[in-house]
Design a binder for these strands. Sequence first.
DNA 1: CAAGATTATGTACATTTGTACATGTACATC
DNA 2: GATGTACATGTACAAATGTACATAATCTTG
Lengths: 181, 181
Amino acid sequence: MSGRRDPEGRRRSIVDAACRLIAEVGVGGLTHRLVAARAGVPLGATTYYFKTLDDLGEAALEYAAQASAEELDAWEQALRAGTDVPKTLASLTVDYLADRPRALVETELYIAAAHRPELRPLAHVWFDGLVEILSAHASPDAARAATIFIDGALLFALTHDQPLDAAALATSLAALLNPPG
Amino acid sequence: MSGRRDPEGRRRSIVDAACRLIAEVGVGGLTHRLVAARAGVPLGATTYYFKTLDDLGEAALEYAAQASAEELDAWEQALRAGTDVPKTLASLTVDYLADRPRALVETELYIAAAHRPELRPLAHVWFDGLVEILSAHASPDAARAATIFIDGALLFALTHDQPLDAAALATSLAALLNPPG
DNA sequence: CAAGATTATGTACATTTGTACATGTACATC
DNA sequence: GATGTACATGTACAAATGTACATAATCTTG
């Protein structure tokens, strides 16, 4: 098995290593050698699979966006199954923010998209996806507001040891999802 | 005047150039030569005033944090003077988010603080300052929630051409500042 | 099994980088 | 005005970097 070739798996392991590295050094901190070392492949491998370093970083962000999309499926099901939408959403958010590397990569994706418009679709995967899911339980405006709040909680989590507790999140999300009418 | 020395002014112009550059290339994209060129000083100047490149980046973020603190004073006065807190806050936020370079630097500061805990106090200047100001008009929890929302709006603004309109902001901020019950 | 295509990897090289430092210049203090 | 101190800057250099590429190993196809 060890001598067997697996180009797709190899490429994936490189992208995966790059994605994990982004959480540590940022997109701008990536280097061919760093990624190659983390992935356990020689330098030539990363330059063979990616014509340029930017392509590699882009692929890593795309990989992260795809992971976001998959997570969204779980959120949709949980929200559909649960009775209290704000409370369920708060619980999902707590778990989401507990994964610090993931939170870091998501933020890096936002910043990268801010600098390079062609990356915006990747950043919108999470945002638009969550807005759409929440739109089944609230008005579009309220769904968008709740998503924005969760992104704010993302920044909060990154800069505080103590993350937001589920109760506070639920209160805020309830207020946003059910505006006084 | 041109031949006159002004070490403090010189240092400030270097830091200012670095700060503006952060909005373009990120903290990690700073180089001595880049900053020197932007500030219009020779390479030796940046290495003379800052022992290391990290020090230079740190000084630039500190500079940005200080600008945040100054802006907060204006916010406090506007909120004290206005009659409708959410509406006034929404208006301030719209102006704040319209300054894209500033928004980029603020986000870079958040990420930098996420990676290097010693920078957290700088990131907290804006966050804690705004929470404190808002605490004069709402409960501490509500003030924190509103601040988190505004930070979320920061990320939204960075990744969308069309920023959030004041009306939508006011609605969400009102819901957060005046929780039902 | 032959031969062509794909995958793999070590090495080389021009650039860019951070930083050190020698040298020079303006300033203050006496 | 002498002289020590802070400011200023050009240059040098080792280290790191992106990328190209020659060569080899493996797979596929006939």
